[in-house]
Amino acid sequence: MSVDVTNYIALSAVMFFIGVAGVIVRRNPLIVLMAIELMFNAANLALVAFARVWVNNAGHIFVFLVVTVAAAEAAIGLAIVVAVFRRAENVDVDEVAGLHG
């Protein structure tokens, strides 16, 4: 019944890099944000797994903090998307390049 923790960590890594690929490849800002959520959750999975290994709920608390930060990040990210949508013609992460050198 018991599964090796290594499997959980590997699963977390797979999810994380799927999220990374999504961030880099996709241009739709909403999907980019969702990919970031994927990365958060991958990290959470690793934290929960480690907490289980050492039977220490500090990892759970940390996940709680990450969830909070993720919520704040999603809210602000979406607010930025809305603001960009109001000003720019296209909603596209390539469109927001005002800081180019």
Binding site: D94, G98, G101
Partner: peptide, 12 residues
């Protein structure tokens, strides 16, 4: 300067 594209994806 060439690295400073302003494009989020390249920074990522």
């Amino acid at each position: 300067r060439a690295l400073q594209t302003g494009l989020v994806r390249s920074y990522a």
